[in-house]
């Protein structure tokens, strides 16, 4: 794994979000550098998806700033968005377009020359083993196929920053492994990868640094070694549970057994 250096490609400064008086994210500060895979972990409802949406401009923060490279995503959205790609946890794709037509659409939005879209799209379809389904409507794709199509669409314009929300959920082991390999390759080429996941094993094996969010606040951040120094647990799961107060669930498991 490589560690990122230089200017951060993703910067969050005091990001805060309230919904009807309820605080979903209460001031998140983080930096992610090019060449590193950054894991954003937390229990359900901790604020992971809200944070990621503020970072990519889909949600306006109640306060704070988010930068992609040197561009404020909310003040200068267009140059910032040109640098990033995003794959949601459940990608909603146009059901009545084929995979190929979807790439043409995304290519048009990102002003990619059509010939390049055609070439790159074919490469990505082959890479994700979707070449036989290229002219089928997306509405007939399984969840895993949609996930791979969404990732291919996000990679079409060679983003410098890639955001993924639960990228391996619902994927078969082969596809999940493929995505992990792709993320490592992207990081090796200098892309900053920001991913959220519930699967701590993935974070442990893949991520250079992690941040743990609970109750809308980042309660721990750093490399795994740094986190282990501040905790009695050895594995990320132990660290995660001790920080997020999950140890008492063992009692519940005993009752249900």
């Amino acid at each position: 794994m490589t560690n990122g250096t230089g200017q951060p490609l993703i910067t969050a400064q005091g990001l805060r979000k309230e919904f009807n008086g309820k605080v979903a994210v209460a001031g998140v500060d983080l930096n992610v550098y090019g060449g590193e895979i950054f894991g954003f972990l937390g229990p359900n409802g901790a604020g992971k998806t809200t944070t990621i949406k503020m970072l990519i401009g889909l949600l306006r923060p109640s306060s704070g700033n988010a930068f992609i490279g040197t561009h404020d995503i909310h003040a200068h959205p267009i140059p910032a968005k040109a640098l990033l790609g995003y794959v949601p946890d459940e990608p909603a794709l146009p059901d009545k377009l084929t995979a190929r037509e979807f790439f043409q659409f995304v290519g048009g939005l990102y002003r990619i020359p059509p010939a390049h879209v055609e070439r790159r799209g074919t490469e990505l379809l082959r890479l994700f083993d979707l070449q036989d389904h290229a002219d089928e409507l997306l509405g007939g794709f399984s969840h895993g196929m949609r996930q791979k199509t969404a990732l291919a669409g996000a990679l079409l314009h060679d983003p410098k920053v890639l955001f993924l929300d639960e990228p391996t959920v619902g994927l078969d082991p082969r596809s999940a492994r493929l995505i992990k390999d792709i993320l490592r390759q992207l990081a090796a080429r200098g892309t900053a990868v920001f991913l959220t996941t519930h699967i701590l094993e993935i974070a442990e094996r893949l991520c250079d640094r992690v941040a743990i969010i609970a109750g809308g606040r980042v309660i721990a951040a750093g490399s795994l070694n740094e986190l282990r120094q501040g905790s009695t647990g050895q594995s990320l799961e132990d660290i995660f549970l001790s920080l997020t107060g999950g140890a008492e669930y063992a009692e519940i498991a005993e009752v249900l057994a």
């Binding site: 059509p114 010939a115 002219d135 509405g139």
Partner: peptide, 16 residues
Amino acid sequence: TQGGRVRRRRVSASGA
């Protein structure tokens, strides 16, 4: 049952 195949149309290199 949402799927279906669509005949591929060639997109010109100079733009559509």
